[in-house]
Design a protein around this nucleic acid. Structure first.
Lengths: 334, 334
DNA sequence: TACGGTAATCGAACCGGTTCGACAACGCAA
DNA sequence: TTGCGTTGTCGAACCGGTTCGATTACCGTA
């Protein structure tokens, strides 16, 4: 492969001149620039990333740390990864995707060896073990998901509390007075997925305030447990007139269950959920729902991170930003 | 951050000695080694990846090029990505994931700048534009999916022809004489997803050989078109006793359609498909199917690539390997 | 005509590792 | 006592970029 030295020789100039022609950081005469450019084209020169990283202390790579749990629903993750990858590329960064089980170790390995300029953590838990080592790293970090201690990091998440209140309000206003609430799998909560109890607590609190009866359940994540669980819940609360589902697997499994039971939506039961548009399309879900906007969250994280990588000091204090939930009415309530 | 020079100073040795202690490429006395190791621990030294890459011409990173099409079913892709990421890590490599729309450009950018030691292409089309630039790259490449010209590259794919024959045989032996065949979306075929027509042609050929009637259709990829299309197909061929579905979206949409029509499986209709176990679990699909084994394919690609990266000459001629399809009987035929 | 300012370029140092050749110290055999 | 092979370590060069300070040529102005 051609090096900058080869280009310099071919163009009859010094290496530094080629570098300046490339970066534009000093003025270069147009004749020289043309000679250099033609040499570059002829030799097919592309700067070596490692050498550039060494010289500039910049890799132009973002580390994306993804965590997959057996008790969560995996296809949803892709909806965060793709927009992040796209947004990063638009800003001139590539994505080093790390899926290692031992998150903290992987994080240290990558940041200590300076493989990346910044880090995005996906699916952050309340007590996420990756957060302390990220805070200790030289590189800035952005999180998708809310940990208990956000100091020093930009954090982005859906406002799950507000989402829950919107759904309860929606049902209450329609006259419902007895509601089923299905949360994520119990493991998710004990493990610390904060979104689970933020949503749940807010829903319960709001329901209590209105004096309406609400029956909380935990859902399953895999078939056939999902179907069994849904049937058990519906059997146990036959008088409920509405159901709020905050669980991807459970809501994806709901249509056939209701169908088999002869329950019509919304005539017999009002159904609301919280999931992304793409997810709903994937499973043909016809329910009114809060849009979780994984693309917005991912892009916001990239944007904040890029700013901080490019101007570590000028970027201001870290932010915790909750994006506002939006209700998409698909006519599954009345 | 501590450099190798800082470690050398702290241990009272030269930089090269530290390097040799780290790599073990020359003998180092045990006292010196201990001094060095303690210095490393105290200073928290981790070698700089860029500098190491520059010196060794090795990045220990694999470029993973993923292509998403609107007319394909996205969640399936994750099933390839995760095992590849895991296998790479086990072999000491990290994953640079590239999802850029302009695949050929991205490929050149990454390989020319020496950001990776090798490349894996996912979802390779018959006439994939990424293949020529990959062949021209310095780095070795492995493909998942069969292009028309495989020269110089390791290629891994499911034996779709054999898969189709197995399914036709299976149905024929059970006595079926009129079969519906649903292929991927027509766009997939015209765009060049070779697996689509490899499966289709083999199925038609086999059916012809047995003299059984087979009705080929193209499927849809998004609701509500999927449901409409399924209904139209079933309306059009009411006398068919079996159906072969080679289309993720169509088979995921099949259960509710059959249910709504009151068609019982396998009593009224025998159903077979071709999809991965994980995919089937995700959508609770109860059908006898050929397992597509994305994990096996991904891991095989990584393995071959690693070998070729570590011993470019000794790895022998490139291979095209078809993995043997396996039928999982879930009792949806009779 | 001397002088200061600007434009264009060069050379050298540096980033942080790895690796090659040299060399000192030592034990052992001739 | 000389010579040789081993072991352990060092210094220097190198990988391929970027960047700083210096230098030259040229311009307009005093």
């Amino acid at each position: 492969m051609a090096t900058i030295g080869d280009v310099a020789k071919a163009a009859g100039v010094s290496r530094s001149t080629v570098s300046y022609a490339l970066s534009g950081k000093r003025t270069i005469s147009s004749e020289t620039r043309e000679r250099i450019e033609s040499a570059i084209r002829q030799l097919g020169f592309t700067p070596n990333a490692g050498a550039r990283a060494l010289a500039t202390s910049q890799t132009k790579v973002i580390g994306l740390f993804v965590q997959f749990f057996r008790d969560e629903f995996s296809p949803a993750m892709l909806q965060y990864v793709l927009p992040i990858s796209d947004a990063a590329r638009e800003a001139g960064y590539d994505i080093l995707m790390v899926t290692e089980d031992d998150g903290p170790r992987a994080l240290r390995r990558i940041t200590d060896s300076d493989m990346v300029d910044g880090v995005i953590l996906l699916n952050v838990a309340h007590d996420d073990e990756r957060v302390p080592p990220l805070r200790a790293a030289r590189q800035p970090g952005a999180l998708v998901g809310l940990p208990k201690d956000t100091e020093g990091l930009d954090v982005f998440d859906l406002d799950f509390g507000e989402a829950a209140r919107m759904l309860v309000d929606h049902l209450y206003e329609l006259g419902h007075r007895e509601i089923i609430l299905i949360s994520p799998n119990e493991h998710v909560i004990t493990r610390g997925g904060a979104y689970a109890w933020r949503f749940r607590d807010a829903a319960l609190e709001r329901a209590a305030r209105y004096g309406l009866r609400i029956h909380p359940f935990y859902g399953e994540t895999q078939q056939p447990a999902v179907t069994e669980s849904l049937n058990a819940i519906l059997d146990q609360r036959p008088t409920a007139t509405a159901i709020i589902v905050h669980n991807d697997a459970m809501i994806a499994g709901l249509p056939p269950v209701l169908n088999a039971r002869g329950v019509r939506v919304p005539d017999d039961l009002s159904v609301v959920g919280i999931y992304s548009e793409d997810f709903g399309r994937l499973f043909s879900l016809p329910y009114t729902a809060i849009e979780t906007s994984p693309d917005k969250l991912g892009r916001a994280a990239v944007q904040a991170l890029v700013q901080r990588m490019q101007d570590p000091d000028g970027a201001g204090a870290p932010v915790v930003r909750f994006i506002a939930p939006e209700l998409t009415d698909r006519g599954s309530t009345r």
